[in-house]
């Protein structure tokens, strides 16, 4: 009987320890490997057009997916926290693809460069918004 109680205690402790590790350590430090992730390839103009024509459908296809977006850099900037942002132009001068670069990304780009940006699609405001982006190709 004592053996069963001891085993149960060990099991409960192991479960509690595992849960604590998963929630507070693993989940907090888990880093997504953007470079190795599978992605949907699309060009900036087609992506913007998809959201402008039918946002609900575009959300179903692209929201929270990893995209590899080809386009021409129209703006390079920094946001309020100092993170670098790149905007790729589309055929519509009022809408583009704005990507916030991951802090680990060190490649430099300039306006007019034709590049490919890879990141998570977060939806559409004035621009299609991409997060955790890396520059896949210059």
């Amino acid at each position: 009987m004592k053996k069963i109680i001891l085993l149960a205690l060990v099991f409960i402790l192991a479960l509690a320890g595992g849960s604590y590790y998963y929630v507070f350590i693993y989940s907090k430090n888990r880093k997504f490997d953007m470079a190795a992730a599978e992605a949907i390839s699309i060009d900036a103009t087609a992506l913007v057009k998809a959201f402008q024509e039918n946002e609900a459908n575009a959300n179903k296809t692209y929201l929270d997916k990893v995209l590899l977006i080809k386009g021409t850099v129209s703006i390079t900037a920094q946001n309020q926290t100092g993170e670098h942002t790149i905007t790729l132009s589309s055929e519509d001068p009022f809408a583009g693809v704005m990507a916030t670069l991951d802090s680990t990304e060190t490649k430099q780009v300039k306006v007019g460069d034709n590049i490919q940006v890879k990141g998570f699609c977060k939806g559409f405001l004035s621009d299609v918004v991409i997060n955790n982006a890396i520059i896949a190709d210059k």
Partner: peptide, 12 residues
């Protein structure tokens, strides 16, 4: 704002 654009310290 886009809701999926909110960043937490903990991914879970």
């Amino acid at each position: 704002v886009l809701i999926k654009g909110f960043k937490f310290e903990n991914q879970l």
